[in-house]
C-alpha cells in the first residue's frame, strides 16, 4: 500500500522518497545488457527467441515451465516488473498449470526467458455473431462455435471509433466482431475483455 501511495504522489505531485518492491526479484542491468546485445538481429520469418508461446506444464516460485505447440520446452522467469494479463492485469498466483500463454521478454544466457509481459489465455478472434444469449455471445469462428461470456465491470465494447464502454447492448446478431478475450482452458468458451464492433 505504501508503494502505491508513493507512486500516486509521484504522478500527482509531492513525490516522497521511494523504496523498491522486490517480492519476485528483478534483473540485474548486466543481465539485460548482455541479453539485448545477443538478441539484436533476428531475421523476418524466423522464430523470435525473445517470445514464447505454449501451455504451462509446471510452476515454481518465480518460474513457469511451458511446452510450445512445436514440442519445445521453455522456462520463463517472472520478476516484480513482469506484467501478467489474464482477462485483466493480475498477479502471479492467478496463473495455473494448463493455461495457454504468450510471453515476451529477454532470453538470458542460460536459456531462460526473463519475462517483461505475460498474456495468459489471451485470444483475438475475428468472428461472426450467430446469436446473443443472456450475458453471452454465440460466435462462429472459422466454422467453430465459441461462447463468449460478458463479465460485468470487466468486459468492454468499442463501437467504430468510440472509446471503450461497458455498454454491450449495441452488439447485434449477424454482425462481425473482433474479440480480445481470455480462453477457458480446454473448452470452447472465452470471457470478453474487449469486443470491437462496427455499428
Amino acid at each position: 500500500m505504501d508503494r502505491r501511495k508513493l507512486l500516486t504522489s509521484a504522478v500527482l505531485g509531492g513525490a516522497a522518497g521511494l523504496v523498491g518492491a522486490t517480492a519476485l526479484g528483478s534483473l540485474s542491468p548486466e543481465d539485460v545488457f548482455a541479453a539485448e546485445g545477443a538478441n539484436a538481429k533476428i531475421n523476418p520469418g524466423d522464430p523470435d527467441p525473445n517470445f514464447v508461446e505454449g501451455r504451462i506444464t509446471g510452476i515454481t516460485d518465480t518460474v513457469l515451465f511451458v511446452t510450445s505447440s512445436d514440442g519445445s520446452l521453455h522456462s520463463i522467469r517472472v520478476t516484480n516488473g513482469t506484467s501478467i494479463w489474464k482477462l485483466n492485469p493480475t498477479t502471479f498466483d492467478e496463473v495455473k498449470v494448463g493455461d495457454g500463454l504468450y510471453a515476451r521478454g529477454l532470453r538470458l544466457a542460460d536459456g531462460t526467458l526473463a519475462a517483461d509481459s505475460l498474456w495468459v489465455n489471451i485470444v483475438n478472434l475475428n468472428a461472426h455473431v450467430d446469436s446473443i444469449g443472456r450475458g453471452s455471445l454465440n460466435l462462429d469462428h472459422h466454422g467453430q462455435r465459441v461462447v463468449a461470456h460478458v463479465e460485468n465491470g470487466r468486459s468492454a465494447a468499442v463501437y467504430n471509433n468510440t472509446p471503450a464502454v461497458s455498454d454491450m447492448s449495441m452488439l447485434e446478431a449477424g454482425k462481425h466482431v473482433k474479440v480480445i478475450g481470455a480462453w477457458h482452458p480446454d473448452t470452447n468458451e472465452i470471457t470478453i475483455s474487449t469486443v470491437y464492433a462496427a455499428v
Binding site: P89, G135, V150, N152, G153, A156, S166, M168
Partner: peptide
C-alpha cells in the same frame, strides 16, 4: 446484455 452495472472496465 443489459444490466452491466456502473463499474468502469479497465480497458476503457
Amino acid at each position: 446484455l443489459s444490466g452491466g452495472g456502473f463499474e468502469i472496465p479497465l480497458d476503457s
